[in-house]
């Protein structure tokens, strides 16, 4: 019997301990936000946090998740108000959207550790997250923006929703 926490809830699992966490999340407890892309740790679509660390759930057997706390995209916020989700929407990041849960989970883990990442730090944290649609430029912009937003929120300004959503930040086109 494997015990683990998923998005704050206690869970138990007594199936195949070799089954990847990805399939447990998607098909056993119906959290479909975490995506299957390659099954080999090559694309990052399946990224979740395990004890706060970004991990590829397709390559993490259930046995390795025992007694750990797992956070999925569904656990980031109840209603899409996590700063990274807000910025992702503001900058209109997704195309097909399939990779984006993984991108967001990697970005959140990066920002938790490195609140103001440089481009090089973003590259190294995000390089394992493939985007087949090529949304990288907006992902990069969104991570910078989320970092700024979090910093300015911390700098005493009460974070009202209006000020956070704020002005358009789409690449400035004439």
């Amino acid at each position: 019997m494997i015990k683990l926490k998923v998005n704050g809830n206690n869970q138990q699992f007594d199936g195949d301990p070799e089954m990847p966490l990805l399939w447990y999340l998607r098909d056993e407890i119906d959290l479909k936000g975490t995506k299957f892309g390659c099954g080999m740790g090559l694309c990052g679509a399946c990224t979740v946090h395990i004890n706060g660390q970004p991990m590829r759930s397709c390559s993490t057997p259930m046995s390795a998740a025992a007694n750990k706390a797992v956070t999925t995209i569904e656990g980031l916020s109840a209603d899409g108000t996590h700063p990274v989700q807000v910025v992702w929407q503001e900058l209109d990041v997704p195309q097909c959207g399939y990779c984006q849960a993984g991108q967001i989970m990697s970005a959140c883990a990066l920002l938790a550790k490195t609140p103001k990442p440089t481009d090089a730090q973003i590259d190294s944290a995000m390089n394992g997250n493939l985007c087949r649609c090529g949304t990288y430029l907006r992902i990069r912009a969104a991570i910078h923006k989320a970092a700024e937003m979090t910093a300015s929120n911390k700098a005493a300004k009460p974070a009202t929703k209006a000020s956070r959503v704020g002005a358009s930040l789409l690449p400035n086109k004439k």
Binding site: G33, I73, G80, Q85, Q89, D92, P94, G97, A101
Partner: peptide, 12 residues
């Protein structure tokens, strides 16, 4: 669909 994408709703 964007909000559903960003919150992991089962839309695919």
């Amino acid at each position: 669909d964007t909000k559903d994408i960003l919150t992991g709703k089962p839309i695919f």
